[in-house]
Design a binder for these strands. Structure first.
Lengths: 348, 348
DNA sequence: TTGTAAGCGTTATCAC
DNA sequence: GTGATAACGCTTACAA
């Protein structure tokens, strides 16, 4: 019944040639330059291909040609909608260029990231896009020596590759300026770990806005979280709800929307009113932000554009002989919703 | 400054051998069986590798070994949290087996799916996991002849591969039984397109529960949607809100949570109270379901387990000589929240 | 312990 | 228009 299982050996061009009664070269020509083969021969070869279930061996092709037609995106967190949106932007660009995109997930772990990078360069992929755990790790440079590589959603101090990012410091400023506008004078920044560049930059921006408004540094507290996830946000919410009303900040700026959604959920569950008892600003403006219990004010980034531009750059680098690295910086935008404005503005 | 760009040619074992003053075989041994090489020679080779920036050519290795150590998951929709959770389950299993996982996104389009599958089989990947657009397409069988392939989140009528799924008919029943319990006698099923198996099965289950309760078939209406996305849900919400109160169903069962979240958001925006004017049940119980404007009642599926089991099966198939295809069916579970229970139950 | 040589499947370069 | 032959870079017997 089951014809598959372990075939003794895979079908090769050699066998196709034998079956069709032609030589190797003719089979190859039929496959790659069909116009150079007489219709009759071509038909015989094509029939043989079908009969034998021949599948081209990409390894062998690559071995000859040197490079694969594969683009790779190494994601920081596949479950974060922000990154899947970026990936979508990349996909569209890759499709236009007739390259296949494969996605790898580092899941925030440097070891997994390295494993993936190593495999990808060994595969001689056309190019690598990556949102790295650490954009200044030596490893990235090493990889970029052999494979075009573009950093996505980060910039690197060491400029040995292109990068595409959104100005996170500005984003942090926008968030805090908004909160200050709304009259908050005691705010918590929620996010961590500090090693994540996005977190550090957004905090930096927040602090800039804070000091520019002449507010006392001590009133902008930093509540660290172990990760940028919903559960981490929930935990932060518990800590916040546990504070006495006088000690508790009147607003929280979360380093991303997952945190903010968790925080929001937990705050409401703990009986806090949002935004009356606690204003909340998120970051990324993922699709779910607007559908939250209280629609979330958030800092929006041009996600698709980020991916699209990154893909464009990596393909450029792959094709140019003397490539100049570029560093693109997009500008974020604040989207104000009920979680800071109040219920009258609930739905845009 | 920029030492990279187009190197004349990539470094090969041959050059490493020359540099280290040894032969090809010794380099290969150093790389693959270091214990068979004297420490001194090994050191020289390793130094040469570093000096020259040698990167193994995976294509050549695969050409010899026949198969790559790569597992692939072809996703139906990379932006749907359900599938990214499944992917996470797969990743854990792949990591345990020391296989790299790459993810491809078909984005619901059969053409993209085929392109990816074709490339993957040409790459001779270790195995393919796929949530297909159409589990009964001829193409899948074709691929499964040459590469171990497991269907994820679907079963196929044609049993030429393993599959891992959750009983969607049962899930549909659970949802409707719950709504019937809550006293609803006029319900809309929201979902589409009908070609998606998940949609058809969940509707089927809903209808079973409906007729078993002795309710008139006409009171379970089917509101089709062009996709299983938040925006499609929003559109459905508009249609629903546009109905007169007497014509409008008192509850909606959505084919997935994205639809349900969109529907929920739009319903509230249109002034409907949930669940008083409209009860809502979603499907998948994604992380965001509980954090929604009104926490969402949903049918939960064992997502991680789904991925984990699928990966296990595909690796089994790859290693067994005479493989018996298995069809695993997991059981879903209803999680009742405020969107059907009312505000007193708001947070679990 | 190290070196030599054959071969994996494909493509390109030639003669025919 | 077609057929032999030599690479591509690596692994693995087997010989030294």
């Amino acid at each position: 019944m089951d014809k598959k299982a372990k075939e003794p050996r895979e079908v090769s061009v050699r066998e196709v040639a034998a079956r069709a009664g032609v030589s190797l070269g003719t089979v190859s020509n039929t496959l790659n330059r069909p116009h150079m083969v007489s219709p009759a021969t071509r038909a015989r070869v094509e029939q043989a291909v079908l009969d034998l279930g021949f599948v081209r061996n990409e390894s062998a092709r690559q071995l000859k040609s040197g490079r694969s037609r594969m683009l790779a995106y190494v994601m920081l967190d596949a479950t974060n909608p922000f990154f899947t949106d970026v990936a979508q932007g990349i996909e569209l660009a890759a499709e236009r260029a007739d390259l296949a995109l494969v996605i790898c997930n580092s899941d925030g772990r440097e070891s997994r990231e390295q494993t993936h990078l190593e495999l990808l360069r060994q595969q001689r992929v056309h190019g690598i896009l990556i949102t790295p755990v650490d954009p200044d790790g030596d490893y990235l440079h090493e990889v970029s020596r052999s494979t075009p590589l573009v950093i996505v959603d980060r910039t690197s101090k060491a400029h040995s590759f292109c990068s595409v990012a959104v100005d996170d410091v500005l984003g942090g400023r926008l968030a805090l300026e908004h909160l200050i506008d709304r009259g908050h004078s005691k705010v918590a920044f929620v996010g961590g770990p500090a090693s994540i560049g996005q977190v550090a930059d957004r905090l930096e921006g927040a602090r800039q806005a804070w000091s520019q408004a002449g507010l006392p540094p001590a009133d902008l507290t930093w509540m660290t979280s172990p990760a940028l996830s919903v559960v981490a946000g929930t935990a932060a919410g518990q800590r916040l709800a546990g504070m006495s009303a006088r000690r508790r900040p009147t607003a929280a700026f979360c380093a991303n929307d997952l945190l903010a959604l968790g925080l929001l959920q937990q705050s409401i569950a703990s009986g806090l009113r949002v935004p009356d008892d606690l204003g909340i600003v998120g970051y990324d403006d993922i699709e779910f932000a607007a559908a939250a219990a209280v629609p979330l004010t958030s800092v929006r980034q041009p996600r698709r554009k980020l991916g699209d531009k990154a893909a464009e750059l990596v393909m450029l680098e792959a094709s140019e002989l003397n490539h100049q690295h570029e560093h693109i910086m997009f500008v974020p935008e604040l989207v104000a919703r009920a979680s800071t404005l109040g219920s009258s503005y609930s739905y845009r």
